[in-house]
Design a protein around this nucleic acid. Structure first.
Length: 741
DNA sequence: GAGCACTGC
C-alpha cells in the first residue's frame, strides 16, 4: 500500500512526490476519487503479470535518483503502457500543473496506447490521460497529466517553448527507430537537461542501441546514463537460413511459401517484400501455384488465401489481414492457410496475430539522399540485423514460430549492418535545419547529434534556406524564415504560401500547397488505366500540373455531396480528404500570422499569377529544354531529366518548374508548370544572375530575355520581391475574399 | 510512357 494518510489534503491523498510505492492498490481512484470499477480490478490483475510490473519499486528507486535513464524492454514487456504510469505516480505532475509526456513515432500508436492506459487508470480518455497528434488534440488543459504524443508534435511544441516547461518528465519511446524527430529531440533534451535540473528524461529502446544511448546521455563525461532493463515476453522463434545465396529473392520466396504450405503445421505466413508492384505480382503467382497444388493433391493440401499489404491500399482492404484463415474445402480435409505478403509496414506499424511463419528475403526499400544533386530516392537495399530480428519476432507473438531467411547465415553475420541507418543520415535536411535554427541552434555543424549528418547535407540545406531568404548570410533566421518555420511544410512550399498574397492568389496557392502535401490523388488501377487517364484528362490544365491539382480540389469540394464522385473520376477520396484537412490547418496558421487570403475574379489573370507565385518558392527547381528530343536540363545542377509520363503539359515549353525530381527507371521531373524566362529573372534575380551561368542554351535564353527587358525598361521590377529581401510587401488590388470559414 | 518503403508536423 502507498503511504495513505486520510488527513492529507486532496488531491495528493498522502502520496509524496518521488516517494510512492504500491501505487495501484487503492480502493479509491486517487485522480477521480471515485471507487475503482470492476474493470479496473480485472485489468490490474493482467498488468500484474507483465514483466515490468514486478520491477516497479526498482524502477522508481532508479528514477528518483537519476535525471536521465535509458531503458530497454523487448516486445511484450509492457514498458510503453506501464512506465509512464509509474512516472506519473512518482511525479504527481497534476499537483504542480505539469505533465508527463510519452512520445511515439506513429499516430496510431499514440492514440491506441493512450486509450489503453486511460482504461488501466480507470479514467476517461482525454481527461487525466490523453493524446496529442496532428489534427487531433485529445487532452484537457489543467486536467491531463499523462500525455501520449507523436515525436513530431513534441518537436513543434519545443519551438514555442524552448524549455518545455509544462513537462516534469519526458519519455522518448521507440528511440531505436531513430526517426528524424526523435533524433532531434534527443539532442534538444540532452541540452535541456543541463538547464532544467528538475526535468527527468527516459529514453526507451530495444536492446541493441542501449549502450550507444547510455554513452550519449552521460551528463558528466565519466558516467554513462544508468540502464534499466525489463525482460520481454514472447515465444521462441526458430531461424533457418539458406545454404547458398538466392539469385532471385522473389522466386525463392514463392517457393518457400509453397513449401511451408505443403509441409508445415497449420499457422499463418507473413512474407516481406519491397513494394506494391512486387507484392501484387507475387500474390498472383502464389495463388496460381497454390491452386495447382490443391488440384493435384486435394487430400493433403488445403486452400490458401494470399493477402497483399502496403500503405497505399485502402483501409478496407488493409483490414483483410485480420480475416481468419480459410476453412478446409471439405469435411476432415487439410486445413486452410492465410498468407500475408507485406512491405515493411508489418515490421513495426501493423501487428497481425496468428502469424507462425515468417519468410524474410532480407530486402526493403530505403530512402537515400544524394546531397550533390539534392535528390531523395528509394532504393531496394539489404535490411539490417536489427530489422531481420524484428521480422523474425513477428512469428512468435502467439506461439512458438519459425523464420525462414532467404540468405546464408554467413551473409547475415558478415554482410548485414547492425542497425538501419538513422533517418537523419538519409534525408534532405532543409526542413530540419529550419526547425533547428528556429529553436535557437545557430551552430548546426557542432550541434550534439546522436549521429551527425554529412556536412554537405547541412550545407545544401543552408544554401537553400539562404536562397529562399529564410536565412541571412550570417546564418540568422530572417523575419520571413521565422514565418516559414511556423508552417508544417517544406521550406519551398512555406515560402510559396507566404509570398502568394503578393500575387493575389493565396487562396489558390493554399489549395495547391495542401494538395502537394498529401499522397497522390490519382488512382490508376491496373486493368482500367485507359479509363483512369481519360478521367484525368478532363481535369487537366494544359500549362500547369499545379493548376490541374487546384482544379481537382475545387471540383471535389463542389461535388462533396456526391458519394460516388471520387470513385467515378478515379480519384482517391482519402487523399482529397487529407488535403482538405491540411488546407484548413494551414489556413488557421495563415490567419494567426495575419497573412491575407485573397483571390482574383479574372481566371486568366489568376492562373498567370499562380504560375508567377510558384516561381517565388520553386525557382531552384527549374529546368530548361535542351535539344528537340524533349529532354530538359535542371538549372545549376545540370541534371538531364525527362517530363514524367503523368505530366499533363500539352507542349514542351522552354522553361518548366517542377515539384519533385524522381529517380526511377530514369530521372524524371514530376508535377510541372510552364514558366517564362522573364518571371525567373524578375522573381529570382539572384539565382538567375546571368554572370553565374556558363555559356550554353540556358544562358542565351536568359540573355535574350534580359535584352528585351532592358529594351522596354521596366523600373518597377527592380524593387519587386527580390528573393533575398525578406517578407514581401503585400499589395492588395482587385481582391475578393473567399472561403472565409 | 511510369509508380508509391514507412512515418511525421
Amino acid at each position: 500500500m502507498g503511504k495513505l494518510d486520510p488527513s492529507a489534503s486532496e488531491p495528493l491523498y498522502g502520496f509524496m512526490p518521488r516517494n510512492v510505492t504500491g501505487a495501484a492498490d487503492h480502493d479509491l481512484n486517487p485522480f477521480t476519487k471515485a471507487p475503482h470499477t470492476a474493470q479496473y480490478r480485472k485489468i490490474l490483475e493482467a498488468r500484474k503479470k507483465l514483466p515490468v510490473f514486478a520491477q516497479m519499486d526498482d524502477f522508481l528507486e532508479m528514477f528518483n535518483k537519476n535525471q536521465i535513464i535509458v531503458m530497454v524492454g523487448e516486445t511484450g514487456s509492457g514498458k510503453t503502457t506501464q512506465i509512464p504510469q509509474f512516472v506519473a505516480f512518482s511525479d504527481l505532475p497534476h499537483t504542480r500543473g505539469k505533465l508527463v509526456a510519452c512520445t511515439q513515432p506513429r499516430r496510431v500508436a499514440a492514440m491506441s496506447v493512450a486509450k489503453r492506459v486511460a482504461d488501466e487508470m480507470d479514467v476517461q480518455l482525454g481527461r487525466q490521460v490523453g493524446y496529442s497528434i496532428r489534427f487531433e488534440d485529445m487532452t484537457e488543459p489543467g486536467t491531463t497529466f499523462l500525455k501520449y504524443m507523436t515525436d513530431g508534435m513534441l518537436l513543434r511544441e519545443a519551438m514555442h517553448d524552448n524549455n518545455l516547461e509544462r513537462y516534469s518528465t519526458i519519455i522518448l519511446d521507440e528511440a531505436h527507430e531513430r526517426t528524424l524527430a526523435t533524433d532531434i529531440l534527443m539532442g534538444l533534451l540532452k541540452d535541456l537537461a543541463k538547464r532544467r535540473s528538475d526535468l527527468k528524461i527516459i529514453v526507451m529502446s530495444a536492446t541493441l542501441d542501449a549502450v550507444k544511448f547510455q554513452k550519449y546521455f552521460s551528463l558528466r563525461s565519466e558516467a554513462s546514463a544508468p540502464l534499466f532493463k525489463v525482460p520481454g515476453r514472447t515465444h521462441p522463434v526458430e531461424v533457418f537460413y539458406t545454404q547458398e545465396p538466392e539469385p532471385d529473392y522473389v522466386e525463392a520466396a514463392i517457393r518457400t511459401v509453397l513449401m511451408i504450405h505443403r509441409a508445415e503445421e497449420p499457422g499463418d505466413i507473413l512474407l516481406f517484400l519491397t513494394g506494391e508492384e512486387e507484392i501484387e505480382d507475387a500474390c498472383r503467382k502464389i495463388k496460381i501455384e497454390a491452386d495447382d497444388l490443391v488440384n493435384q493433391d486435394p487430400d493433403s493440401v488445403g486452400p490458401l488465401v494470399c493477402i497483399p499489404l502496403y500503405s497505399s491500399l485502402p483501409p478496407q482492404q488493409q483490414q483483410r489481414i485480420f480475416d481468419p484463415a480459410p476453412k478446409s474445402s471439405k469435411e476432415g480435409g487439410p486445413p486452410g492457410r492465410k498468407i500475408v505478403v507485406s512491405t515493411n509496414i508489418a515490421e513495426t506499424s501493423l501487428t497481425i496475430d496468428g502469424i507462425v511463419y515468417v519468410v524474410d528475403p532480407g530486402f526493403s526499400k530505403q530512402k537515400v539522399y544524394n546531397p550533390r544533386i539534392r535528390v531523395e530516392s528509394l532504393l531496394v537495399s539489404p535490411i539490417s540485423k536489427a530489422s531481420a530480428q524484428q521480422r523474425a519476432g513477428r512469428a512468435g507473438r502467439t506461439r512458438p514460430g519459425k523464420c525462414f531467411r532467404l540468405y546464408t547465415e554467413k551473409d547475415f553475420i558478415k554482410e548485414l549492418e547492425e542497425q538501419t541507418y538513422p533517418e537523419i543520415l538519409r534525408s534532405n535536411l532543409a526542413n530540419t535545419v529550419l526547425e533547428l535554427v528556429n529553436l535557437g541552434i545557430k551552430d548546426l555543424v557542432h550541434f550534439d547529434y546522436v549521429d551527425a549528418p554529412a556536412p554537405e547535407t547541412l550545407m545544401r540545406a543552408l544554401e537553400l534556406l539562404n536562397f529562399l531568404a529564410a536565412m541571412d548570410d550570417e546564418g540568422n533566421l530572417t523575419a520571413l524564415g521565422k514565418l516559414m518555420a511556423e508552417f508544417p511544410l517544406d521550406p519551398q512550399l512555406a515560402k510559396l504560401l507566404i509570398s502568394s498574397p503578393e500575387f493575389n492568389c493565396s487562396n489558390e496557392i493554399l489549395t495547391i500547397t495542401a494538395m502537394l502535401s498529401v499522397p497522390n490523388v490519382w488512382l490508376r488501377p491496373n486493368n482500367q488505366r485507359r479509363e483512369a487517364d481519360a478521367a484525368k484528362e478532363l481535369f487537366t490544365v494544359p500549362e500547369s500540373d499545379h493548376l490541374t491539382l487546384l482544379n481537382v480540389y475545387n471540383q471535389f469540394i463542389l461535388n462533396k455531396w456526391d458519394k460516388n464522385w471520387t470513385w467515378t473520376n478515379y480519384l482517391s477520396a482519402r487523399a482529397l480528404g487529407q488535403a482538405e484537412n491540411v488546407r484548413s490547418q494551414l489556413q488557421r496558421i495563415m490567419e494567426r500570422l495575419d497573412i491575407d487570403l485573397v483571390s482574383l475574379d479574372d481566371e486568366i489573370k489568376l492562373f498567370l499569377n499562380v504560375r508567377k507565385a510558384l516561381v517565388c518558392g520553386f525557382f531552384m527547381q527549374v529546368a530548361h529544354k535542351e535539344g528537340d528530343k524533349g529532354s530538359y536540363t535542371t538549372v545549376k545542377d545540370h541534371q538531364v531529366v525527362g517530363l514524367h509520363p503523368s505530366c499533363g503539359l500539352k507542349t514542351q515549353p522552354e522553361w518548366v518548374l517542377f515539384n519533385e525530381f524522381v529517380l526511377t527507371t530514369r530521372p524524371y521531373i514530376r508535377t510541372v508548370t510552364e514558366v517564362r524566362t522573364e518571371w525567373l529573372m524578375e522573381f529570382a534575380p539572384l539565382y538567375f544572375d546571368l554572370k553565374t551561368f556558363p555559356d550554353g542554351e540556358m544562358k542565351r535564353a536568359l540573355q535574350r530575355a534580359y535584352n528585351k527587358k532592358m529594351g522596354i525598361s521596366n523600373p518597377r521590377s527592380e524593387s519587386r520581391n527580390e528573393s533575398r529581401k525578406g517578407t514581401p510587401t503585400v499589395e492588395v488590388r482587385e481582391v475578393k475574399r473567399r472561403r472565409k470559414e
